[in-house]
Design a protein around this nucleic acid. Structure first.
Lengths: 247, 247
DNA sequence: AATCCTCGGATTGTTCAACAATTCCTGGAT
DNA sequence: ATCCAGGAATTGTTGAACAATCCGAGGATT
Protein backbone atom coordinates (compact mmCIF):
# COMPACT_ATOMS: atom_id res chain seq x y z
CA UNK A 1 0.00 0.00 0.00
CA UNK A 2 2.98 2.22 0.28
CA UNK A 3 3.70 2.39 -3.39
CA UNK A 4 2.24 2.72 -6.82
CA UNK A 5 -1.03 0.82 -6.96
CA UNK A 6 -3.06 3.14 -4.79
CA UNK A 7 -1.94 6.27 -6.59
CA UNK A 8 -4.03 8.35 -8.94
CA UNK A 9 -7.47 7.66 -7.77
CA UNK A 10 -9.46 9.84 -10.04
CA UNK A 11 -7.29 10.28 -13.05
CA UNK A 12 -8.78 8.55 -16.07
CA UNK A 13 -5.98 8.06 -18.52
CA UNK A 14 -7.11 10.98 -20.64
CA UNK A 15 -6.89 14.29 -18.80
CA UNK A 16 -4.86 16.72 -20.84
CA UNK A 17 -6.05 18.66 -17.83
CA UNK A 18 -5.54 22.30 -17.16
CA UNK A 19 -1.86 23.05 -17.30
CA UNK A 20 -0.04 23.30 -20.53
CA UNK A 21 -2.03 22.02 -23.43
CA UNK A 22 -0.19 23.35 -26.40
CA UNK A 23 3.18 21.81 -27.14
CA UNK A 24 2.50 22.95 -30.61
CA UNK A 25 2.31 25.80 -33.01
CA UNK A 26 5.95 26.71 -32.58
CA UNK A 27 7.22 23.67 -34.39
CA UNK A 28 7.17 25.66 -37.60
CA UNK A 29 10.72 26.82 -37.23
CA UNK A 30 12.24 23.43 -36.65
CA UNK A 31 10.55 20.06 -36.56
CA UNK A 32 8.03 19.26 -39.19
CA UNK A 33 5.23 16.77 -38.87
CA UNK A 34 4.00 14.42 -36.20
CA UNK A 35 3.05 17.10 -33.70
CA UNK A 36 -0.49 15.82 -34.07
CA UNK A 37 0.11 13.15 -31.49
CA UNK A 38 -2.19 12.72 -28.50
CA UNK A 39 0.43 14.22 -26.23
CA UNK A 40 0.52 11.90 -23.24
CA UNK A 41 0.91 14.05 -20.17
CA UNK A 42 3.98 13.48 -18.10
CA UNK A 43 3.77 12.03 -14.62
CA UNK A 44 4.45 15.42 -13.11
CA UNK A 45 1.56 16.83 -15.09
CA UNK A 46 -0.74 14.11 -13.85
CA UNK A 47 0.30 14.71 -10.28
CA UNK A 48 -0.38 18.40 -10.75
CA UNK A 49 -3.76 17.55 -12.27
CA UNK A 50 -4.65 15.34 -9.33
CA UNK A 51 -3.73 18.03 -6.85
CA UNK A 52 -5.62 20.61 -8.85
CA UNK A 53 -8.61 18.34 -8.60
CA UNK A 54 -8.34 17.91 -4.86
CA UNK A 55 -7.90 21.64 -4.58
CA UNK A 56 -11.05 22.32 -6.58
CA UNK A 57 -13.01 19.79 -4.58
CA UNK A 58 -12.09 21.54 -1.40
CA UNK A 59 -10.29 18.53 -0.01
CA UNK A 60 -7.32 20.72 0.61
CA UNK A 61 -8.22 23.88 2.44
CA UNK A 62 -6.36 27.18 2.10
CA UNK A 63 -3.37 27.31 4.37
CA UNK A 64 -3.00 23.54 4.47
CA UNK A 65 0.50 22.26 4.12
CA UNK A 66 1.57 19.93 1.34
CA UNK A 67 4.46 17.76 2.37
CA UNK A 68 6.59 16.41 -0.42
CA UNK A 69 7.23 13.02 1.10
CA UNK A 70 3.58 12.46 1.99
CA UNK A 71 2.28 13.17 -1.48
CA UNK A 72 5.18 11.30 -2.96
CA UNK A 73 4.14 8.17 -1.08
CA UNK A 74 0.41 8.62 -1.50
CA UNK A 75 0.66 8.87 -5.23
CA UNK A 76 3.51 6.47 -5.65
CA UNK A 77 5.82 8.86 -7.43
CA UNK A 78 9.23 10.23 -6.73
CA UNK A 79 9.71 13.21 -4.51
CA UNK A 80 11.43 14.95 -7.37
CA UNK A 81 8.39 14.55 -9.53
CA UNK A 82 6.13 15.95 -6.85
CA UNK A 83 8.48 18.88 -6.77
CA UNK A 84 7.93 19.54 -10.44
CA UNK A 85 4.20 19.36 -9.95
CA UNK A 86 4.51 21.91 -7.17
CA UNK A 87 6.33 24.23 -9.54
CA UNK A 88 3.40 24.03 -11.93
CA UNK A 89 0.85 24.76 -9.26
CA UNK A 90 2.91 27.56 -7.82
CA UNK A 91 3.03 29.19 -11.22
CA UNK A 92 -0.76 29.11 -11.22
CA UNK A 93 -0.85 30.66 -7.77
CA UNK A 94 -2.85 27.74 -6.44
CA UNK A 95 -0.07 27.04 -4.03
CA UNK A 96 2.54 29.14 -2.36
CA UNK A 97 6.10 28.12 -1.88
CA UNK A 98 7.84 29.35 1.21
CA UNK A 99 11.56 28.70 0.90
CA UNK A 100 12.80 26.00 3.21
CA UNK A 101 9.39 25.78 4.81
CA UNK A 102 7.22 24.04 2.33
CA UNK A 103 4.30 24.66 0.05
CA UNK A 104 0.89 25.66 1.29
CA UNK A 105 -2.48 25.89 -0.32
CA UNK A 106 -2.85 29.49 -1.34
CA UNK A 107 -5.13 31.72 0.63
CA UNK A 108 -6.20 35.19 -0.37
CA UNK A 109 -5.84 38.15 1.90
CA UNK A 110 -8.27 41.08 1.74
CA UNK A 111 -5.99 42.81 -0.73
CA UNK A 112 -5.97 39.77 -2.97
CA UNK A 113 -9.73 39.72 -3.18
CA UNK A 114 -9.77 43.21 -4.59
CA UNK A 115 -6.90 42.30 -6.83
CA UNK A 116 -8.66 39.30 -8.31
CA UNK A 117 -11.78 41.30 -8.97
CA UNK A 118 -9.73 44.00 -10.62
CA UNK A 119 -8.39 41.47 -13.05
CA UNK A 120 -11.88 40.19 -13.70
CA UNK A 121 -13.25 43.67 -14.26
CA UNK A 122 -10.54 44.45 -16.76
CA UNK A 123 -10.83 41.26 -18.72
CA UNK A 124 -14.49 40.36 -18.55
CA UNK A 125 -15.81 43.83 -19.21
CA UNK A 126 -13.46 44.30 -22.13
CA UNK A 127 -14.49 40.94 -23.49
CA UNK A 128 -18.20 41.63 -23.33
CA UNK A 129 -17.70 45.02 -24.93
CA UNK A 130 -16.07 43.33 -27.87
CA UNK A 131 -18.97 40.94 -28.31
CA UNK A 132 -18.54 37.57 -29.92
CA UNK A 133 -19.62 35.22 -32.63
CA UNK A 134 -23.12 33.70 -32.45
CA UNK A 135 -21.62 30.42 -31.28
CA UNK A 136 -19.83 32.13 -28.41
CA UNK A 137 -22.94 33.99 -27.39
CA UNK A 138 -24.81 30.71 -27.51
CA UNK A 139 -22.24 29.28 -25.15
CA UNK A 140 -22.96 32.08 -22.72
CA UNK A 141 -26.65 31.32 -22.97
CA UNK A 142 -25.92 27.66 -22.36
CA UNK A 143 -24.08 28.53 -19.16
CA UNK A 144 -27.06 30.53 -17.97
CA UNK A 145 -29.37 27.58 -18.54
CA UNK A 146 -26.88 25.30 -16.87
CA UNK A 147 -27.11 27.49 -13.81
CA UNK A 148 -30.88 27.45 -13.92
CA UNK A 149 -30.92 23.68 -14.06
CA UNK A 150 -28.52 23.43 -11.14
CA UNK A 151 -30.71 25.78 -9.15
CA UNK A 152 -33.87 23.75 -9.63
CA UNK A 153 -31.90 20.63 -8.81
CA UNK A 154 -30.66 22.32 -5.65
CA UNK A 155 -27.10 21.40 -6.49
CA UNK A 156 -24.97 24.14 -5.00
CA UNK A 157 -21.76 22.65 -6.35
CA UNK A 158 -23.10 22.59 -9.90
CA UNK A 159 -24.37 26.10 -9.42
CA UNK A 160 -20.87 27.26 -8.69
CA UNK A 161 -19.36 25.60 -11.71
CA UNK A 162 -22.15 26.92 -13.91
CA UNK A 163 -21.33 30.40 -12.74
CA UNK A 164 -17.72 29.83 -13.63
CA UNK A 165 -18.75 28.55 -17.04
CA UNK A 166 -20.76 31.70 -17.53
CA UNK A 167 -17.83 33.98 -16.91
CA UNK A 168 -15.48 31.72 -18.79
CA UNK A 169 -17.82 31.87 -21.78
CA UNK A 170 -17.80 35.64 -21.67
CA UNK A 171 -14.04 35.77 -21.88
CA UNK A 172 -14.04 33.07 -24.53
CA UNK A 173 -15.80 35.51 -26.84
CA UNK A 174 -12.47 37.26 -27.27
CA UNK A 175 -11.06 34.16 -28.96
CA UNK A 176 -7.77 34.56 -27.18
CA UNK A 177 -5.84 31.59 -25.93
CA UNK A 178 -3.91 33.69 -23.45
CA UNK A 179 -6.92 35.45 -22.03
CA UNK A 180 -8.65 32.13 -21.63
CA UNK A 181 -5.84 30.64 -19.62
CA UNK A 182 -5.50 33.78 -17.52
CA UNK A 183 -9.20 33.75 -16.78
CA UNK A 184 -9.05 30.04 -16.06
CA UNK A 185 -6.35 30.59 -13.50
CA UNK A 186 -8.19 33.42 -11.83
CA UNK A 187 -11.35 31.38 -11.62
CA UNK A 188 -9.45 28.44 -10.20
CA UNK A 189 -7.90 30.71 -7.64
CA UNK A 190 -11.30 32.00 -6.64
CA UNK A 191 -12.96 28.63 -6.48
CA UNK A 192 -10.15 27.42 -4.31
CA UNK A 193 -10.48 30.16 -1.81
CA UNK A 194 -14.19 30.86 -1.83
CA UNK A 195 -15.07 27.25 -1.37
CA UNK A 196 -16.40 27.77 2.10
CA UNK A 197 -18.66 30.48 0.81
CA UNK A 198 -20.56 27.79 -1.04
CA UNK A 199 -22.09 26.86 2.26
CA UNK A 200 -24.34 29.84 1.91
CA UNK A 201 -27.09 28.32 -0.16
CA UNK A 202 -28.31 31.56 -1.62
CA UNK A 203 -24.90 32.86 -2.46
CA UNK A 204 -24.70 31.89 -6.08
CA UNK A 205 -28.42 31.67 -6.48
CA UNK A 206 -28.83 35.42 -6.30
CA UNK A 207 -26.63 35.73 -9.33
CA UNK A 208 -28.92 33.84 -11.63
CA UNK A 209 -30.99 36.86 -12.54
CA UNK A 210 -27.92 38.96 -13.09
CA UNK A 211 -26.53 36.42 -15.48
CA UNK A 212 -29.84 36.23 -17.29
CA UNK A 213 -30.01 40.00 -17.71
CA UNK A 214 -26.44 40.21 -18.93
CA UNK A 215 -27.02 37.41 -21.38
CA UNK A 216 -30.16 39.03 -22.75
CA UNK A 217 -28.42 42.33 -23.31
CA UNK A 218 -25.63 40.47 -25.01
CA UNK A 219 -27.99 38.61 -27.30
CA UNK A 220 -29.75 41.84 -28.13
CA UNK A 221 -26.46 43.35 -29.20
CA UNK A 222 -26.58 45.95 -26.44
CA UNK A 223 -22.94 45.51 -25.59
CA UNK A 224 -22.49 48.65 -23.55
CA UNK A 225 -25.49 47.83 -21.45
CA UNK A 226 -24.26 44.30 -20.95
CA UNK A 227 -20.90 45.68 -19.93
CA UNK A 228 -22.49 48.00 -17.38
CA UNK A 229 -24.52 45.18 -15.91
CA UNK A 230 -21.50 42.94 -15.69
CA UNK A 231 -19.44 45.64 -14.04
CA UNK A 232 -22.13 46.26 -11.44
CA UNK A 233 -22.38 42.55 -10.88
CA UNK A 234 -18.65 42.23 -10.28
CA UNK A 235 -18.62 45.15 -7.88
CA UNK A 236 -21.48 43.71 -5.91
CA UNK A 237 -19.87 40.29 -5.88
CA UNK A 238 -16.66 41.73 -4.56
CA UNK A 239 -18.51 43.46 -1.76
CA UNK A 240 -20.19 40.24 -0.76
CA UNK A 241 -16.97 38.31 -0.76
CA UNK A 242 -15.23 40.92 1.30
CA UNK A 243 -18.11 40.85 3.72
CA UNK A 244 -17.95 37.10 4.11
CA UNK A 245 -14.20 36.90 4.45
CA UNK A 246 -11.80 38.92 6.51
CA UNK A 247 -11.45 42.58 5.59
CA UNK B 1 36.07 25.47 -16.59
CA UNK B 2 33.54 22.76 -16.94
CA UNK B 3 31.98 23.20 -13.57
CA UNK B 4 30.81 25.71 -11.06
CA UNK B 5 33.17 28.67 -11.10
CA UNK B 6 32.19 29.98 -14.51
CA UNK B 7 28.50 29.80 -13.81
CA UNK B 8 26.23 32.71 -13.14
CA UNK B 9 27.98 35.46 -14.94
CA UNK B 10 25.66 38.31 -14.38
CA UNK B 11 23.78 37.42 -11.25
CA UNK B 12 24.72 39.77 -8.45
CA UNK B 13 23.70 38.13 -5.23
CA UNK B 14 20.56 40.19 -4.98
CA UNK B 15 18.16 39.51 -7.83
CA UNK B 16 14.76 38.68 -6.42
CA UNK B 17 14.34 38.64 -10.17
CA UNK B 18 11.16 38.20 -12.05
CA UNK B 19 9.58 34.95 -11.00
CA UNK B 20 7.87 34.61 -7.71
CA UNK B 21 8.49 37.50 -5.40
CA UNK B 22 5.85 37.08 -2.78
CA UNK B 23 6.22 34.15 -0.43
CA UNK B 24 4.14 36.22 1.82
CA UNK B 25 0.75 37.52 2.72
CA UNK B 26 -0.72 34.06 3.13
CA UNK B 27 1.11 33.37 6.34
CA UNK B 28 -1.78 34.84 8.24
CA UNK B 29 -3.54 31.55 8.66
CA UNK B 30 -0.62 29.62 10.03
CA UNK B 31 2.89 30.89 10.72
CA UNK B 32 3.22 34.23 12.35
CA UNK B 33 6.27 36.42 12.17
CA UNK B 34 9.63 36.21 10.48
CA UNK B 35 8.27 36.40 6.95
CA UNK B 36 10.13 39.66 6.63
CA UNK B 37 13.30 37.87 5.69
CA UNK B 38 15.26 38.81 2.58
CA UNK B 39 14.09 35.65 0.86
CA UNK B 40 17.19 34.26 -0.78
CA UNK B 41 16.17 32.88 -4.15
CA UNK B 42 16.72 29.19 -4.67
CA UNK B 43 19.24 27.91 -7.15
CA UNK B 44 16.49 26.98 -9.54
CA UNK B 45 15.19 30.51 -9.37
CA UNK B 46 18.62 31.89 -10.10
CA UNK B 47 19.04 29.59 -13.05
CA UNK B 48 15.67 30.72 -14.36
CA UNK B 49 16.71 34.32 -13.85
CA UNK B 50 19.92 33.79 -15.76
CA UNK B 51 18.08 32.19 -18.65
CA UNK B 52 15.50 34.95 -18.61
CA UNK B 53 18.35 37.39 -18.92
CA UNK B 54 19.92 35.60 -21.84
CA UNK B 55 16.51 35.43 -23.43
CA UNK B 56 15.94 39.16 -23.03
CA UNK B 57 19.37 39.95 -24.40
CA UNK B 58 18.61 37.99 -27.50
CA UNK B 59 21.42 35.53 -26.91
CA UNK B 60 18.94 32.75 -27.31
CA UNK B 61 16.87 33.14 -30.44
CA UNK B 62 13.33 31.85 -30.82
CA UNK B 63 13.27 28.22 -31.81
CA UNK B 64 16.67 27.51 -30.29
CA UNK B 65 16.93 24.36 -28.27
CA UNK B 66 17.87 24.29 -24.62
CA UNK B 67 19.55 21.05 -23.68
CA UNK B 68 19.36 20.08 -20.05
CA UNK B 69 22.82 18.62 -19.81
CA UNK B 70 24.45 21.56 -21.55
CA UNK B 71 22.93 24.18 -19.30
CA UNK B 72 23.49 21.95 -16.33
CA UNK B 73 27.22 21.89 -17.03
CA UNK B 74 27.53 25.51 -18.11
CA UNK B 75 25.98 26.78 -14.91
CA UNK B 76 27.37 24.11 -12.66
CA UNK B 77 24.07 22.92 -11.34
CA UNK B 78 22.26 19.64 -11.35
CA UNK B 79 20.15 18.55 -14.26
CA UNK B 80 17.21 18.31 -11.93
CA UNK B 81 17.55 21.91 -10.95
CA UNK B 82 17.70 23.00 -14.56
CA UNK B 83 14.52 21.08 -14.99
CA UNK B 84 12.80 23.11 -12.30
CA UNK B 85 14.01 26.30 -13.89
CA UNK B 86 12.53 25.13 -17.17
CA UNK B 87 9.20 24.63 -15.48
CA UNK B 88 9.25 28.23 -14.35
CA UNK B 89 10.08 29.56 -17.76
CA UNK B 90 7.52 27.34 -19.42
CA UNK B 91 4.86 28.73 -17.11
CA UNK B 92 5.83 32.18 -18.34
CA UNK B 93 5.59 31.02 -21.94
CA UNK B 94 9.15 32.07 -22.59
CA UNK B 95 9.97 28.52 -23.43
CA UNK B 96 8.00 25.64 -24.82
CA UNK B 97 8.28 22.12 -23.61
CA UNK B 98 7.76 19.39 -26.14
CA UNK B 99 7.42 16.06 -24.36
CA UNK B 100 10.37 13.78 -24.91
CA UNK B 101 11.86 16.27 -27.32
CA UNK B 102 13.15 19.06 -25.21
CA UNK B 103 12.50 22.70 -24.50
CA UNK B 104 12.78 25.40 -27.11
CA UNK B 105 12.81 29.14 -26.95
CA UNK B 106 9.26 30.19 -27.64
CA UNK B 107 8.40 31.69 -30.97
CA UNK B 108 5.16 33.39 -31.84
CA UNK B 109 3.11 32.43 -34.85
CA UNK B 110 0.93 34.96 -36.65
CA UNK B 111 -2.00 33.97 -34.46
CA UNK B 112 0.03 34.58 -31.34
CA UNK B 113 0.85 38.11 -32.39
CA UNK B 114 -2.80 38.97 -32.56
CA UNK B 115 -3.35 37.15 -29.32
CA UNK B 116 -0.71 39.09 -27.46
CA UNK B 117 -2.06 42.37 -28.71
CA UNK B 118 -5.53 41.36 -27.68
CA UNK B 119 -4.32 40.89 -24.15
CA UNK B 120 -2.58 44.23 -24.25
CA UNK B 121 -5.64 46.00 -25.61
CA UNK B 122 -7.80 44.55 -22.85
CA UNK B 123 -5.48 45.33 -20.02
CA UNK B 124 -3.77 48.54 -21.03
CA UNK B 125 -6.87 50.30 -22.26
CA UNK B 126 -8.80 49.34 -19.16
CA UNK B 127 -5.95 50.55 -17.02
CA UNK B 128 -5.69 53.92 -18.66
CA UNK B 129 -9.43 54.38 -18.45
CA UNK B 130 -9.22 53.92 -14.71
CA UNK B 131 -6.57 56.56 -14.36
CA UNK B 132 -4.07 56.51 -11.53
CA UNK B 133 -2.58 58.37 -8.63
CA UNK B 134 -0.35 61.36 -9.36
CA UNK B 135 2.69 59.26 -8.57
CA UNK B 136 1.70 56.64 -11.10
CA UNK B 137 1.03 59.24 -13.74
CA UNK B 138 4.39 60.73 -12.97
CA UNK B 139 5.92 57.32 -13.58
CA UNK B 140 4.33 57.26 -17.01
CA UNK B 141 5.76 60.67 -17.73
CA UNK B 142 9.15 59.47 -16.56
CA UNK B 143 9.02 56.60 -19.02
CA UNK B 144 8.26 59.03 -21.83
CA UNK B 145 11.28 61.13 -20.92
CA UNK B 146 13.37 58.00 -20.64
CA UNK B 147 12.44 57.20 -24.21
CA UNK B 148 13.28 60.70 -25.35
CA UNK B 149 16.69 60.47 -23.76
CA UNK B 150 17.35 57.11 -25.36
CA UNK B 151 16.35 58.53 -28.73
CA UNK B 152 18.76 61.45 -28.58
CA UNK B 153 21.45 59.07 -27.38
CA UNK B 154 20.68 56.86 -30.36
CA UNK B 155 20.44 53.83 -28.10
CA UNK B 156 17.93 51.50 -29.74
CA UNK B 157 18.14 48.99 -26.93
CA UNK B 158 17.32 51.59 -24.31
CA UNK B 159 14.55 52.86 -26.53
CA UNK B 160 12.93 49.47 -26.44
CA UNK B 161 13.11 49.11 -22.70
CA UNK B 162 11.81 52.64 -22.25
CA UNK B 163 8.82 51.72 -24.36
CA UNK B 164 8.24 48.72 -22.16
CA UNK B 165 8.50 50.88 -19.09
CA UNK B 166 5.91 53.18 -20.57
CA UNK B 167 3.37 50.45 -21.02
CA UNK B 168 4.28 48.84 -17.75
CA UNK B 169 3.69 52.16 -16.02
CA UNK B 170 0.26 52.41 -17.60
CA UNK B 171 -0.77 49.06 -16.21
CA UNK B 172 0.81 49.89 -12.88
CA UNK B 173 -1.80 52.60 -12.45
CA UNK B 174 -4.29 49.87 -11.64
CA UNK B 175 -2.32 48.99 -8.50
CA UNK B 176 -2.84 45.30 -9.11
CA UNK B 177 -0.15 42.80 -8.37
CA UNK B 178 -1.66 40.22 -10.68
CA UNK B 179 -2.13 42.58 -13.59
CA UNK B 180 1.44 43.74 -13.21
CA UNK B 181 2.84 40.25 -13.42
CA UNK B 182 0.58 39.38 -16.33
CA UNK B 183 1.70 42.46 -18.17
CA UNK B 184 5.28 41.74 -17.29
CA UNK B 185 5.03 38.30 -18.80
CA UNK B 186 3.39 39.56 -21.96
CA UNK B 187 6.05 42.21 -22.39
CA UNK B 188 8.79 39.66 -21.81
CA UNK B 189 7.20 37.43 -24.38
CA UNK B 190 7.13 40.24 -26.88
CA UNK B 191 10.63 41.43 -26.25
CA UNK B 192 11.83 37.89 -26.69
CA UNK B 193 10.24 37.45 -30.03
CA UNK B 194 10.43 40.92 -31.51
CA UNK B 195 14.08 41.25 -30.78
CA UNK B 196 15.06 41.15 -34.40
CA UNK B 197 12.62 43.96 -35.09
CA UNK B 198 14.90 46.21 -33.09
CA UNK B 199 17.18 46.24 -36.07
CA UNK B 200 14.85 48.71 -37.72
CA UNK B 201 16.20 51.91 -36.23
CA UNK B 202 13.01 53.87 -36.68
CA UNK B 203 10.79 51.19 -35.31
CA UNK B 204 10.43 52.34 -31.75
CA UNK B 205 11.33 55.90 -32.58
CA UNK B 206 8.05 56.49 -34.33
CA UNK B 207 6.24 55.69 -31.14
CA UNK B 208 7.74 58.52 -29.16
CA UNK B 209 5.16 61.04 -30.26
CA UNK B 210 2.35 58.59 -29.60
CA UNK B 211 3.55 58.05 -26.08
CA UNK B 212 3.87 61.78 -25.56
CA UNK B 213 0.32 62.41 -26.73
CA UNK B 214 -1.08 59.63 -24.58
CA UNK B 215 0.79 60.90 -21.58
CA UNK B 216 -0.44 64.45 -22.09
CA UNK B 217 -4.03 63.35 -22.32
CA UNK B 218 -3.53 61.31 -19.21
CA UNK B 219 -2.04 64.20 -17.31
CA UNK B 220 -4.90 66.42 -18.44
CA UNK B 221 -7.36 63.95 -17.03
CA UNK B 222 -8.81 63.18 -20.45
CA UNK B 223 -8.94 59.49 -19.80
CA UNK B 224 -11.24 58.54 -22.67
CA UNK B 225 -9.10 60.39 -25.13
CA UNK B 226 -5.99 58.77 -23.74
CA UNK B 227 -7.67 55.41 -24.06
CA UNK B 228 -8.57 56.05 -27.68
CA UNK B 229 -5.05 57.10 -28.50
CA UNK B 230 -3.61 54.06 -26.81
CA UNK B 231 -5.99 51.76 -28.62
CA UNK B 232 -5.09 53.26 -31.97
CA UNK B 233 -1.46 52.94 -31.07
CA UNK B 234 -1.79 49.27 -30.23
CA UNK B 235 -3.67 48.55 -33.43
CA UNK B 236 -1.04 50.28 -35.50
CA UNK B 237 1.72 48.52 -33.64
CA UNK B 238 0.12 45.17 -34.28
CA UNK B 239 -0.11 45.91 -37.97
CA UNK B 240 3.56 46.79 -38.10
CA UNK B 241 4.60 43.68 -36.30
CA UNK B 242 2.50 41.48 -38.51
CA UNK B 243 4.02 43.19 -41.52
CA UNK B 244 7.56 42.57 -40.33
CA UNK B 245 6.99 38.98 -39.32
CA UNK B 246 5.25 36.16 -41.07
CA UNK B 247 1.54 36.52 -41.72
C1' DA C 1 8.20 32.84 36.22
C1' DA C 2 9.83 34.49 31.94
C1' DT C 3 13.50 34.72 28.54
C1' DC C 4 17.24 32.93 26.11
C1' DC C 5 19.96 29.18 24.32
C1' DT C 6 20.98 24.83 22.55
C1' DC C 7 20.06 20.55 20.67
C1' DG C 8 17.53 17.09 17.91
C1' DG C 9 14.06 15.81 14.58
C1' DA C 10 11.82 16.77 10.46
C1' DT C 11 11.50 18.81 5.91
C1' DT C 12 13.20 21.12 2.19
C1' DG C 13 16.92 22.09 -1.39
C1' DT C 14 20.19 20.05 -4.28
C1' DT C 15 23.16 16.73 -6.19
C1' DC C 16 24.39 12.38 -8.25
C1' DA C 17 23.85 8.15 -10.63
C1' DA C 18 21.16 5.05 -12.84
C1' DC C 19 17.64 3.25 -16.09
C1' DA C 20 13.44 3.15 -19.17
C1' DA C 21 11.31 5.49 -22.93
C1' DT C 22 11.51 8.22 -26.75
C1' DT C 23 13.26 10.69 -30.51
C1' DC C 24 16.51 11.40 -34.11
C1' DC C 25 19.91 10.11 -37.34
C1' DT C 26 22.44 6.99 -40.03
C1' DG C 27 23.12 3.24 -42.99
C1' DG C 28 21.77 -0.29 -45.51
C1' DA C 29 18.20 -3.31 -48.05
C1' DT C 30 14.61 -3.29 -51.16
C1' DA D 1 13.91 7.08 -53.85
C1' DT D 2 11.53 4.61 -50.02
C1' DC D 3 11.38 1.94 -46.22
C1' DC D 4 13.13 -0.30 -42.35
C1' DA D 5 16.44 -1.57 -38.80
C1' DG D 6 19.66 -0.17 -35.18
C1' DG D 7 22.22 2.80 -32.35
C1' DA D 8 23.39 7.35 -30.28
C1' DA D 9 21.56 11.09 -27.79
C1' DT D 10 18.16 13.21 -24.83
C1' DT D 11 14.43 13.35 -21.94
C1' DG D 12 11.51 11.39 -18.03
C1' DT D 13 11.63 9.36 -13.66
C1' DT D 14 13.39 7.15 -9.78
C1' DG D 15 16.04 6.40 -5.53
C1' DA D 16 19.33 7.60 -2.32
C1' DA D 17 22.19 10.63 -0.20
C1' DC D 18 23.67 14.95 2.10
C1' DA D 19 23.72 20.02 3.46
C1' DA D 20 20.86 23.70 4.98
C1' DT D 21 17.14 25.30 7.25
C1' DC D 22 13.31 25.43 10.25
C1' DC D 23 10.68 24.03 14.30
C1' DG D 24 9.73 22.60 18.83
C1' DA D 25 11.27 20.84 23.32
C1' DG D 26 13.85 21.11 27.18
C1' DG D 27 17.37 23.36 30.14
C1' DA D 28 19.96 27.02 31.82
C1' DT D 29 20.08 31.84 33.21
C1' DT D 30 18.49 36.01 35.21
Amino acid sequence: MTSAESGFRGIPGSAPAGGRQSPDEAGATLGLAARLRVAIPSVADRVAAELRLQLAEGLLLPGARLTESTISEELGVSRNTVREAFAELAAERLVIRQPNRGVFVASLGPGDIHDVYTVRRFIEVSAIRGGGSPERVAAVRAAVEEGRAAATADDEEALGTANQHFHGAIVAMAESRRLNTIMGQVLAEMRLFFHKATVDAHFYRSYLDDNEAICEALEAGQLERAADLLLAYLNRSEQKQRAVHGD
